[in-house]
Each structure stands twice: as C-alpha cells, then as structure tokens.
Amino acid sequence: MAKKSINSLPSTTVSPLIGKRRSILFWITLITIICGFLIGLKPDNLFSNNSLKLATEFFKASISPAIDYENPVEGTEPFLKVVVESILITLRFAILVMSVSVPIGAILAFLSTTAWWPENINSTTKKSLLRTLHIIARSWIAFARSIHELIWGIIFITAMGLSTEAAIVAVTIPFSGILAKIYAEIFEEQCKETQSMFRAIGAGYFVSFLVGIIPSALPDIISYTFYRLECALRAAAVFGFVGIETIGYKIKLSSDEFHYQEVWTYLYALFLTIALLEWWGGKIRVSLNSKHV
C-alpha cells in the first residue's frame, strides 16, 4: 500500500485546532488582565508583612486544632460539646432549607419544563394557559436565582429582623430557583421513548411523564439534591457571619479573638459533616444507578 503524505490531506489556511485554541486563550488572558486592572487588584497586598504573619499563624494552627477553649472561661459549656451543637444547628438549618426548597423547586420545575406537554395542543385556551404558566415559572426561577442568598438574607433580615426564620426564607428563595432550573433540565435530557410509548397506549400526559420520565431522572435528581444540601450547609455556615447562630457564628467569634485553633476545629467539623453527606449521597447514587443500567 502506498504511504500517505501530509500533502495528500485536504488543504487548509490555518491549523484548525491550534489556531482556534490560541485565539481563545489570548482573549481569555486579555479579559482577565483588564478585569483585574479595572477592579484595582494589587497582588502585593497578599504578601505584605502583616498578612503573611497572620496567614502563617492561621495555617500553623491547622495542625493542632483545639479540643478545649484557647482562653477558657469558667461556667461555659465544654468546647467539643459546643462544636457538636453548632454542627447540629447548622445541619438543622440546612435540612429545613432543603425541606422547603425541594417541593417548591419540583413544582416550579414541572411548570417550567415542556417535557410533559402534549405534542399537539389543539385548544387555544389550554395552549395559552400552559405558555403563561411556563413564562411565569421561568421568570420567577431566573429572578430568584439571579440574586445570591446573602443578598436575599440582607433584604429579609432588614425587613423581618435578625431571625433564623428570615435566614431560612432568604436561602430558600434562590435554592428553590436553582433546584427548579436543574430539575427541569434533567427532565428534558431524559430519553422520551418510554414516555411516548405510554402515550401511545393511552396514558395521559401527566401520567406518561410521571412513569416515563421521573424514574429515569431520579438518580440525577437525588445526586443534585444532595449537592444542594451541601451548599445549604455552607450557606448556613455563612449566615453565622451575619448573626444567625450556626457554626459560622462560632467561627467568627473565635476568629475575631484570633483563636485559630478553635477556628480549625470548627472547620474540620464542618468538613467532616460535608464528607459524611457526600459519602451517604454517593451510596444512594450507586444504589440508584445500579437499577438504571
């Protein structure tokens, strides 16, 4: 067989892969530099004497996390009990947020997806109603998730006062929006053949969707819900910095007093909780995926 030479390939003016990639890389670098310049970044701030000293102290504390208060005060509860309690409070906050966000997100996802819609809608009234609900749901989802939970938090805490309830409402709004968007995308990505078959043997649109789409979407939905539970846990911790008594509140108190070993104990406890959630979620994912081969 005759050997092929490069000249036998179709001619091109630029190397199709390298040329395009270089151009994209160039533009990304340029935009990054311009953004940094406009935002007033000064990288040397990171390496000033004071910040380096603080950073060294902080990271040094990571190898010896506290098992008791660094500055014990008589009459206070044991430190490790406080750590466990603050984790439980944070977990309760996250679970409450998800308990409200998941059903709202599921309803919004159902309204915002076209995955269950009839192929041909003959009635104008039905068509208008579906489209209106679809637009309202999509708009609300876009609005709810475009504002970060901390900003919702500031709004609600300003309006309702500093309370756990206000914080839960603040986190629930964007979380239900994000869950709705992802759930809707998961529904739309599923293979429609089972759903179509159920339609072809006389099932209604809702039932075909429920039996033809939901079971195959379930592993992805559960996997994403677990991820959002982790996010809710982190959000709960962050809300501690604005005064809600989650683990973030304790971290802030210890940090303000430069008790970095205590800070690391709280951080490790948070990490351990998230790791446990990840492990549990993983086990559920594996068990569900094994049923969807």
Partner: peptide
C-alpha cells in the same frame, strides 16, 4: 417498540 421502553428501575 424497538428499545422495549421498559422502566429499568422498576
């Protein structure tokens, strides 16, 4: 149908 359209997790 060709792909049988079964719900695999059922």
């Amino acid at each position: 149908p060709q792909n049988l359209a079964l719900v695999n997790s059922f």
